[in-house]
Design a protein around this nucleic acid. Structure first.
Lengths: 246, 246
DNA sequence: CTTGAGCCCGACGCGACGTCGGGGCTTTGA
DNA sequence: TCAAAGCCCCGACGTCGCGTCGGGCTCAAG
């Protein structure tokens, strides 16, 4: 039996045979005068034992032990089963995320549970503001993942169900021109404060945002937002802070 | 922000950061006078986008395209979902095999559906005969996998349910001494023929065993069995062949 | 005798980092 | 003020199970 015949019988490639020879897993068969390997049924059986075990997830390095000592296999099977179960769980979670992404229609690099907070794509917004909103959601999504994203989301629940993103409001914020009039600015501040007030009221119970997290969010603002928007943010923060007991 | 802080924030290792720098996925940040990297929040966001996507199974080589062009992601997500589903199926099948093995108590390198054909481990049998039986089951299990293992098993179904391995019979065969008397041999042959006759009768309908497969089985016999056992096999085969119409 | 398929070997590639070893920087406590 | 400890840097090799390439040899058929 030549290499390719053995390989076909066992359902592997010739390269696999050579690899098993190299690592000493399969004994070298006798050679013909020209150097061709000639296998017998013993090699086939050995190879089949190997393929059965690797199909179960046994690593090649563990095979010598398992093939020679059948008792050693039990603990290994346990571990392989656990690993397979864990891997299935990971993949299932991954598929769930993909499905959520497809439902939300949002770009795949932001957390699907925050995608409803994006501004309406129909709104006309400068490219850098689109990018800023995107990056902010990514940052918030990650920073709150281990701090309690569910608790955060709960802040926005009302008797009528969860609040959705205030699309026109955020668009007005993002499209603020540097030369906006004071009236325009204070009107926007009023609207934002009105929107945020009930949320802030409920925040009294929850632990404040991690200091490093808020520093990072500030840094992101600093990098991207225009001065007029910083002014709006500061004003909103002042008004909301005053409403809170210090 | 130093390397280890960024890494901790994003949940990766410092080595991963260096790897992303090497392949150009993460821009190099400015360095301190001593050569230390100093990251800002922009790097963190970039890194988080990367980790979110890799968690979905996106390969690093595809990231530049996906990060820059959000539309390119859709087809990719489809493929990733399919691959994840296929992988889950493979792992589930693997777990099913492991579970079957644990129920049967058989060594993990033979097909669990044939494990009931092993001789009773309580029977006293020479080590090489144990090995022979093991290897024969491996060979049969594989050769019939693509030829119809189910059809083969059906040959052994009776009205009272599937026949089980004739434990004392096979043990008598395997433990035959080279100097066994003619009486002993012919008694064993009679018993084996009686056992196999109904099976052979049903085999008339099914296609005969692939010629290469039977050659391999013969070769295995040749390598391992003692002359007296060859004699028994030949006798049994003659008797069963005569009972068949040629 | 030639041709074409099949076999041999050595060596590099892949994917996403882990790990090791040798050497500088920075901070903290004595 | 200085030394020890703890970070940081870099380059390079290791992991796992083979795939792939290139160049040369062999074998059976025409």
């Amino acid at each position: 039996m030549l290499s390719s015949e053995l390989a076909a019988l066992a359902g592997v490639t010739v390269r696999t045979l050579r690899h098993y020879h190299q690592i000493g897993l399969l004994p070298e068969p006798p050679r013909s005068s020209g150097g061709y390997r000639h296998y017998d049924v013993g090699h086939l059986v050995r190879l089949l034992r190997i393929t059965r075990l690797t199909a179960l997830g046994v690593p090649l390095s563990a095979l010598p032990a398992v093939l020679d000592d059948p008792d050693a296999a039990d603990a290994l099977l346990d571990e392989l089963d656990h690993r397979a179960a864990a891997e299935i769980e990971r993949l299932t979670a991954r598929r769930a995320v993909i499905a959520a992404l497809r439902r939300s229609g949002a770009p795949p690099d932001l957390p699907p549970e925050l995608s409803s907070w994006r501004s309406d794509p129909e709104e006309e917004m400068p490219a850098d503001m689109v990018r800023y909103e995107h990056e902010q959601l990514i940052l918030i999504g990650h920073l709150l993942e281990q701090g309690g994203l569910t608790g955060f989301s709960a802040l926005f629940d009302t008797a009528d169900g969860p609040m959705t993103a205030p699309a026109p409001l955020t668009a007005r914020f993002y499209t603020l021109e540097p030369d906006a009039s004071d009236d325009e600015v204070s009107a926007l501040v009023d609207a934002l404060v009105a929107y945020m007030e009930p949320v802030v009221a409920r925040m009294a119970d929850t632990p404040p945002l991690d200091s490093r997290a808020s520093a990072l969010l500030d840094e992101l603002n600093e990098q991207t937002l225009r001065p007029v928007q910083h002014r709006v943010l500061r004003l909103v923060q002042q008004r909301l802070a005053l409403a809170d007991p210090p």
